[in-house]
Write a protein that binds this DNA or RNA. Structure first.
Length: 303
DNA sequence: TGCGTCAACTCGCGTG
DNA sequence: CACGCGAGTTGACGCA
């Protein structure tokens, strides 16, 4: 018994010091008369506060009934009754602080805490397991809230971008139609002006790459734009429009697709798929008919 | 009395 | 194979 008392007291100091809790538990530990308190020295939890800041002067142990004390697994801890009983506020607070410091429980630490709190090591292990489960649940809730707010923000961004895109699309359509009207409705008088600088650069890059990769004469030439234009303007034969030249349209739409063509077979250039690639708007968007098909290409030819 | 919380249990799995 | 852990469940308990 003497050995036990000494052991418990020194364990307490070591445990509390090692956990940085020495100061908080520096007062007398157990209320006088607590059956197990006497064996563990004169510590108490008078410095512990409850959730409202009130001092907790309850004994660390709940009072152990005499008939609860008996043999258990280790023979060293009071036998708990079969009925479930809640841990005292002080025990929970001690465990919480211990959990804050380290949410895993090494065997030696488990024994020390069990001794300090007068509980079975098994109870400490169970408490830590349940505590980890509660922590994980809360963490999951936090993660969910965080992800949800991110999702909401992204969705708002996305929605506004979609709306902006629709507005721009409508504006393009409107301006294109207006442009055609201003040209007296005659596409014949429609002369494409010079390309924007960036597109001219792109075109020369294309030419270089075509020569380099295929060692052949460039399929599409910048100087053929005028003939391409007249072909494009032939709204009755979009297929034919690509046989002569579609350099600009191809470069704008599908750089890689253009290079995948088998240049020995020029008939592929006019394939339906390639016609699609030469459109900026989706192929499904054919509500405006061939006039719009031409108009949209003209729009991109226009500086 | 219904419901939420929590200690304790069971089961399955991973690890040394 | 013992041990510890996570996940799921059970049952006691406190409260409105």
């Amino acid at each position: 018994m003497v050995g036990k008392r000494h052991h418990g007291s020194s364990n307490m100091a070591v445990l509390l010091q090692s956990q940085g809790m020495y100061k908080e538990f520096s007062g007398p530990l157990f209320a006088p008369g607590t059956p197990t308190g006497d064996s563990l020295g004169s510590w108490s939890l008078t410095d512990l506060k409850d959730g409202r800041g009130n001092s907790l002067e309850r004994p660390l142990f709940r009072p152990v009934e005499l008939d609860e004390i008996g043999d258990d697994d280790s023979g060293e801890y009071p036998r708990q009754p079969d009925k479930k009983r809640r841990l005292t506020t002080c025990q929970v607070q001690f465990l919480e602080k211990s959990f804050e410091l380290e949410n895993k429980l090494e065997p030696e630490r488990k024994l020390q805490i069990a001794k300090v709190l007068g509980l079975k090591p098994r109870q400490i292990a169970v408490w830590f397991q349940n505590r980890r489960a509660r922590w994980k649940t809360k963490q999951t809730e936090k993660d969910y809230e965080s992800l949800k707010s991110s999702y909401d923000a992204l969705k708002m961004d996305h929605d506004s971008l979609v709306k902006e895109k629709e507005d721009l699309k409508a504006e393009v359509l409107s301006l294109t139609k207006r442009l055609l009207k201003e040209e007296n409705g005659s596409l014949e008088s429609f002369e494409p002006k010079r390309l924007p600088d960036n597109l001219q650069n792109l075109d020369s890059t294309l030419a270089f790459e075509v020569k380099k990769l295929h060692g052949q004469t460039m399929l599409c030439k910048q100087e053929d734009i005028s003939s391409a234009n007249s072909a494009i303007l032939d709204s009755e034969s979009p297929h034919h429009a690509h046989e002569g030249d579609c350099s600009m349209l191809m470069e704008l739409n599908s750089y890689s697709n253009a290079f995948r063509l088998d240049h020995s077979d020029h008939s592929q250039i006019g394939d339906v798929d390639n016609v699609k690639h030469c459109n900026f708007l989706s192929p499904e968007d054919t509500s405006c008919g061939s006039e719009f098909h031409v108009a949209e290409q003209v729009f991109w030819l226009w500086p």
